[in-house]
Simulated scan of single mutants.
Amino acid sequence: MRRFTCVALLALLVLSPIGTAASAPAVPADTAAERPTLSADVTSRTSISNDTTRRLELDTVSTQGYGTPGLDLGAAVAMNRETVDSNYQLELLSVRLGAASSDEARQALVEAAIEDVESRVDTLQQQERQAIEAYGAGDISERELLKRLALVGYRAEQTKDTIARLERSTGASLGYLTRQANEYSTPTRSALFRTLNNERDGSLQAQVQGSQSGVVIQLLAQTGPDLEYYREAVRLDHWDTDTTNGFDNRTEFLEYTEGRYPYVRESSGVNIWEFRRGSWFYESPLDQGSIRIYVDGSQRKVYREYQQLTVSALPVSNSVNATDYGVEVVINETANGGPARIQVQNVLSGDAIAAPVMVDGTVVGQTDDDGIHWFTQPSGDYEVTVELPQGPINVSVSS
């Protein structure tokens, strides 16, 4: 079931004048009113390409939509306060270690500090699970989910910093805790937190797909000259936290990973290790970007997947065009459910047309001066609408 979260904005756009980079050919009012809405179908998106990464999906999508966490100064202030408190606790630990009267006393202080960090990592896991399950059940909105996961990601980064400082001050080896905290720190969540903190002016929009067993988040963000595609997928049902069974060795795990993700076979600079007992971690740079994977060895299933890919490097899989009112709309989908590119132009002159773009009734942006806009695709069939002064052009996209 899709939820539409921008009804008010949509109504405003429909009632407001629409700016264009070039005007569409004029259509008499009576003709435009009588003309049926144009629809077109594309070929199935179920075909899989090995020219880019595979993508971890949900078995069933119970709810989905577009949203942004938006500016939240209260959340930003709270996070800054948590950082100050953490720094204070570390300084206090340093003072107490210096004043400790024996090695046993110092050891007890270090063990207590480590237990505190372990508790913080457990809290990250609980907060993430609660947010995902609440969204899948329809109890919270996309906006609230994105906010909660952004805060989980920020806390994970702060926890990693605390662990590093604790290692420096005590000499303890806590790499296992760093890897656990890093599980909840993702490029997607970092981008979302910057929106909370106003670094992206509150304009970042994400497409969310959810169920009570997992979530997929996609978003597009400009990074320097490149448009980047961020995607993360978490499958709670693919991770058995109690098992200790797993892959026998690195070779067996690598064979599994390369079989599941054929595109990564040619990559270099791969990091592989047994993440927890029974679970394994894979991280690799790619020609198109980077990927991070977590696998439950007992189930032989991927339960986390984080990707950051350069949009211009992604292969096109399907294309469809529709023409009405003297305007052509072309949609090019990238492979394996990646982002899609829409272009709107005047058929006679070839001039670009700037117009609002909607997906299933939700505004996802407006074509630029070149008549182009990139958007993230929802799960299943969906409809793209380009709003023109003469009327809408609707394009149906089939999964």
Score class of each variant (00 low, 15 high):
R96T: 13
Y154W: 08
G371C: 11
K160Y: 06
Q390F: 00
T170I: 02
S312G: 04
G136Y: 03
D30I: 01
A113V: 02
Q343R: 14
L219H: 10
L15F: 01
A172R: 10
N50V: 09
W273D: 14
E115W: 09
F275H: 13
E104V: 01
T188P: 10
E305W: 09
L192I: 00
L109T: 06
G326L: 02
L227I: 01
A105N: 09
S349D: 12
S268D: 10
G338R: 05
V302Y: 12
G74D: 15
L71S: 04
G278Y: 06
S290A: 14
A150S: 15
G259D: 15
V344I: 07
A352V: 02
E266P: 03
Q299K: 15
T334V: 04
E232Q: 15
A355T: 07
L92M: 05
Q127S: 12
P356T: 04
D201N: 14
Q308C: 08
V121R: 06
Q64C: 09
D226Q: 09
E115L: 10
R45Q: 11
G246K: 07
Q158L: 05
A335R: 07
Y306F: 15
D72P: 02
Y184Q: 06
D30C: 05
N394L: 03
R265Q: 12
N394Q: 12
A113L: 04
Q107R: 08
T46S: 15
A113W: 00
D242V: 02
E133T: 05
G210H: 06
R155T: 05
L38M: 07
K160Q: 14
V395H: 07
Q209E: 15
Y256T: 03
P315K: 10
E328R: 15
L9C: 13
I291Y: 05
V264S: 03
A233T: 13
V395W: 07
T195C: 00
M358C: 05
E274R: 13
S39P: 00
S396I: 00
L10D: 12
N245D: 14
E34P: 00
R276V: 08
E57F: 03
R235M: 02
N321A: 09
G350H: 03
G361Y: 02
T251V: 03
L93Q: 14
V215W: 07
E128W: 05
D41H: 13
L71Q: 11
T188G: 06
Q288R: 01
V14S: 02
G269E: 09
P69R: 01
S312K: 11
Y263E: 13
G175S: 15
N197L: 01
Y325W: 09
P389I: 03
A108F: 08
G391H: 08
F4Q: 11
M358S: 11
D287C: 00
G214N: 10
G259I: 01
A172I: 00
L286A: 10
V364I: 13
T52L: 12
A26D: 09
P225V: 05
T37R: 13
D287A: 08
